[in-house]
Structures are given as structure tokens and as C-alpha cells.
């Protein structure tokens, strides 16, 4: 830079310009210096980038190819008619095949519940079991054996699970147990943080159709729900009341839970009592649930489901 400077007065020495050629006379040394500084700078930059974007200590696990994104879990009570069992299995398998989901149909008697514990409790270990069988699957969908998927074209991801979608669907500030529980669902919850999606009927939380994101939280939630002291407590409605108890007493559960409209995945059939507000199944809805048909001796699941099965078969033909 200094080489081009014009001086206003003559220099003291006659051959002052000699200094510049002298400097240029050692180009090798100069370039080595330059090279060294550039190398250092680049190395520092690379290190900085690596440091900034280094992966956290727990490396994220990449799911192997072919892992179903959702696994549908339905526990089968031994008391169901063979016809009913066949239909609900076919119903879920057909739906799963369309979307690349997995299915899991354990019997309610597969799990050692403590003596005297209602067999409906087995849905909790069944979910835990499904998580072991499908370790890389993201979501588990528990669907009761009395429910039927009516619209097999609807994808769970586009209809419910997408974070933006769930944000638009979530019911906020709703008492967890109607009508007047002091514990209400969170008013602000990011879609990404939701790990537990279910619906509410007239009496409370409806555990007949629920979505649980797998992972550490799910382990905690299911193990906690399945605790022997809950099972032995004789909750009036077994695991259902235990769930309501957990949600109301433990903030770490409530903070991950989201309620959505009942008809989105748990519309009650016309014969079933206890549907929540706007909770009755209407033609075109995703799921119908003949809620309570198996436990009520006066009702027959086969009869109640027959018209829905017919409609569903027509839908699958299209």
C-alpha cells in the first residue's frame, strides 16, 4: 500500500526507493507467512463451525427403513365373538396398509395384571409392549376393540399429528374432567411438544382412542399409569380414572396432553351413551366407537357395528 504513496518533499536519501524492491526480494518468506496465517484462519473457522454444529452428546437415532411411523394397538378381549375379532383386525390392517402403518393385536389376557384388576388395564402394558416391538416408531395409536375406522383415506399425520394441525385442533382451557375440574388443559402449547392426544366424552377423558408419542416421556407416562398402587386402588372406572387422577395431580403429564374434538378420532355411535358435546359420530367421520357395547350385557357389539361395517366395506371398495 505504501508503495504508491507520493511524497510531498524529496526524501533524505537518494535511493530511498530501494527499500521496496528489498522487501519484494524475499517473496518466499513473505508467502510462507501469508500462507501460514491463512491456514490458521481457515483451521480456526473450521473448528468454529464444527464446534457450533456439533451434535449433542445423545446422538439422535435414525429409524431404519421400513419403520412404520404409526403403530395401531388394539387389545382384544377374549370374550368378543370371532366375527367381531376378524372384522376389527381386518379394519385396522386395511387402514395400516394404505398408509404404511403397523398394527399390534395382543389379547387382554396376555399381561399379568394383579388379581382382581379389570382386564381393561391391559391397554397400558400393551402400549408399552408395542413400544418395545417397534422401537423406532414415532406414534402409537391405541384404538379400542369396539371402534372402527370409517374413513381409511384419512392419514393421521395430515389430519391430526402435524404440529401446526394439532395446534389448530387442540382444545385449550378445558376442565380435564367435566364439568368443573379446577385442572384445565394448557392454554399455550406448541405442537412440537405435544406427546399425548386424546378426546373427552361426557364423563371425562376417553382412553378408547389415544395417540402417544414414543420416547422417554411415554415410558414414564405408561409406567406411572400402570403403577401397582393405582391398579389396586379400585378406581371406579379402572385405568380411566387412574388416568384422570394422573393428569390432575402431575403437571409433567398434563403439560404434554392435548384434547381434541371427540369426532376427530372417537365419535360415539348413536347407541352409545355418554358422548361429549358434539361427540356423536356423523357420516363421514374418521372413527366410530360403539362405546361400552362389550361391557353392557344388554347390548351386542355385533349388532351395533353391523351397519358401520357395511358402510366401511363400501368405502374401502372405492
Amino acid at each position: 500500500m505504501a508503495a504508491g504513496v507520493q511524497f510531498p518533499y524529496p526524501r533524505k536519501t537518494s535511493d530511498s526507493s530501494a527499500s521496496y524492491p528489498q522487501q519484494r526480494s524475499s517473496p518466499s518468506r513473505f508467502s510462507i507467512k501469508k500462507l501460514a496465517s491463512y491456514t490458521l484462519g481457515i483451521a480456526a473457522l473450521v473448528w468454529l463451525v464444527l464446534w457450533l454444529f456439533r451434535s449433542p452428546a445423545t446422538t439422535s437415532v435414525v429409524a431404519p427403513l421400513g419403520t412404520p411411523p404409526v403403530v395401531i394397538v388394539t387389545t382384544i378381549p377374549p370374550g368378543l365373538s370371532e366375527k367381531h375379532k376378524a372384522i376389527i383386525k381386518e379394519n385396522r390392517l386395511d387402514y395400516a396398509k394404505r398408509h404404511g402403518y403397523g398394527t399390534f393385536f395382543p389379547n387382554t389376557t396376555d399381561y399379568e395384571l394383579a388379581p382382581g384388576t379389570p382386564s381393561t388395564w391391559s391397554q397400558v402394558p400393551a402400549l408399552r409392549h408395542a413400544m418395545t416391538l417397534y422401537p423406532y416408531t414415532e406414534w402409537m395409536w391405541f384404538l379400542s376393540s369396539t371402534a372402527l375406522i370409517m374413513d381409511p383415506t384419512k392419514s393421521l399425520y395430515t389430519e391430526i399429528l402435524d404440529p401446526r394441525k394439532i395446534e389448530s385442533l387442540m382444545i385449550v382451557d378445558r376442565p380435564v374432567v367435566p364439568p368443573d375440574s379446577v385442572i384445565k388443559t394448557f392454554s399455550h402449547l406448541k405442537g412440537e411438544r405435544v406427546k399425548f392426544i386424546l378426546t373427552q366424552d361426557k364423563d371425562g377423558l376417553a382412553d378408547e382412542s389415544m395417540l402417544i408419542q414414543t420416547g422417554d416421556w411415554a415410558k414414564f407416562f405408561l409406567d406411572g399409569w400402570y403403577d401397582p398402587l393405582y391398579r389396586s386402588y379400585n378406581f371406579q372406572k379402572a385405568q380411566r380414572h387412574a388416568l384422570e387422577h394422573m393428569v390432575q395431580w402431575h403437571g409433567t403429564v398434563l403439560a404434554k396432553m392435548v384434547l381434541i374434538g371427540q369426532r376427530l378420532m372417537n365419535g360415539y355411535a348413536g347407541e352409545a351413551p355418554g358422548a361429549g358435546q358434539d361427540g356423536q359420530y356423523q357420516s363421514g367421520d374418521f372413527v366410530v366407537n360403539c362405546f361400552g357395547c362389550a361391557s353392557d350385557p344388554k347390548r351386542s357389539c355385533d349388532e351395533e357395528m353391523a351397519p358401520y361395517v357395511k358402510t366401511w366395506r363400501e368405502a374401502t371398495k372405492q
Binding site: 395382543p106 396376555d110 399381561y111 399379568e112 402394558p125 408399552r128 418395545t132 415410558k219
Partner: peptide
């Protein structure tokens, strides 16, 4: 509370 008869084994991960 593993599966009755052990045919499913212990279901934990």
C-alpha cells in the same frame, strides 16, 4: 408383569 405363560416374554424394552 410379563405375559402369561411367558410366550410374549417380558414386554419391557
Amino acid at each position: 408383569a410379563s405375559a402369561a405363560g411367558g410366550d410374549l416374554g417380558n414386554y419391557l424394552d
